[in-house]
Amino acid sequence: MRGLDSQFWSTQGSNVTLAVIAIVAFVAVVALIMFGADLVRGRSRDKVQLVVLVTPVLALLAVGLIYPAFDTIWISFTESVREPDPETGINTVTTTFAGLSNYVYAFTDPTMARTILNTLLWMIFVPLLSTGIGLAYAVFIDRAKGEKVLKSLVFMPMAISMVGASVIWGSIMYNYNQTGDQTGMLNALLVLVGLEPVSFLTVQPWNTFFLILILVWSQTGFAMVIISAAIKGVPPEMNEAASLDGANAWERFWSITIPSIRGTLVVVVTTITIATLKVYDIVRTLTQGRNSTDVVANKMFVLSFVEQRQELGAALAVILFAFVIPVVIYNVRSLNKVKETR
């Protein structure tokens, strides 16, 4: 505060004033447009109001989503060339079309290829483990004593940020000391039973799976709560009828429970998969991508903002988007099948 002079506060005051004026002007324009649409009478009233309501949303989507997406795709097909100016000798940067060279590099360079492979591993294991453990937990504690408490214990990690979860696992569970007493819980247990401590975050390739466990720990609670709610929606009469027909618990689970909650399972898997593809915090906090643990989101950040190689970063962003497309298609097709069965 002492180092801030009057010019700083004057500049900040001007910025705040401009921001307030812009917000007031925006609200006034929207109010006038809405008021004008409300004055329209006749058959065109509904159409005019629809256009007035939808146009701002489409404009915001175009400015905030569609244009950046196409701009990123274009940047991924270019490269920056630094050449000295023939007259001044000063290096100038020109952008030229590079075709698929950035994508070829992304899939052929060993480091980049390892990053993409790690992302695929995260994409496979996190949804499967989170959903599988959440499903098993929801089934076993359904209508059990202390159900609410048991659910709360598993759901609690959802309230912790990814950075917080990373710090917890890094300092409490995975901590490794080359010399001295082991303070990490897992290594302390290993030493207690006479085994050598393990550097969980550096030993390859298992360090990637140890990072995956952190996100599984965080997402299992989400899967468990959603699946548990779906299981409670299964009519008990169906299980009772199956029991009278001689079906055991395992047969009732596969023949009644799973088909009844299939739509919920698809939504849970899809949601966790998309969240997994965006994982950045865990890797950035614990390893910064070292020891072959990098993922696309972190590598994209490093290339774009640290190494100033925006073209390669844009290519990775497009690859990440391409990973999402099959997930969305599977989600839509699976939900359509569920609707057809009903």
Rank of each mutant, 00 (worst) to 15 (best):
61 L>T: 08
76 S>C: 02
54 V>E: 12
73 I>R: 00
91 N>Y: 15
78 T>F: 03
103 Y>R: 02
106 A>L: 10
96 T>R: 11
51 V>M: 14
77 F>E: 00
86 P>E: 05
69 A>Y: 11
63 V>C: 08
102 N>I: 04
57 V>H: 10
76 S>A: 04
106 A>I: 06
92 T>H: 10
58 L>N: 11
87 E>V: 15
74 W>I: 07
61 L>A: 14
103 Y>T: 04
74 W>V: 08
104 V>D: 11
103 Y>A: 04
71 D>Y: 07
64 G>F: 15
95 T>I: 08
102 N>V: 02
99 G>W: 07
58 L>I: 14
75 I>D: 00
93 V>M: 12
84 P>S: 07
56 P>C: 10
60 L>H: 07
101 S>W: 06
97 F>G: 05
105 Y>N: 10
69 A>E: 03
80 S>P: 02
61 L>S: 10
57 V>M: 14
70 F>D: 00
84 P>M: 03
62 A>Y: 12
59 A>L: 15
67 Y>K: 07
55 T>M: 15
65 L>A: 10
95 T>L: 04
55 T>C: 15
53 L>P: 05
93 V>F: 11
50 L>R: 12
56 P>E: 09
80 S>V: 15
91 N>K: 10
71 D>E: 13
100 L>K: 07
75 I>K: 01
74 W>D: 07
74 W>S: 12
78 T>C: 00
81 V>N: 09
103 Y>S: 05
96 T>G: 00
85 D>I: 07
99 G>A: 14
72 T>K: 01
61 L>V: 10
54 V>T: 15
68 P>C: 03
49 Q>W: 07
60 L>K: 08
97 F>I: 06
48 V>P: 04
104 V>I: 14
97 F>V: 09
58 L>W: 08
53 L>C: 13
52 V>R: 05
94 T>L: 06
49 Q>M: 14
87 E>T: 13
97 F>R: 01
100 L>W: 13
55 T>G: 11
102 N>P: 03
78 T>E: 02
99 G>I: 08
50 L>Y: 14
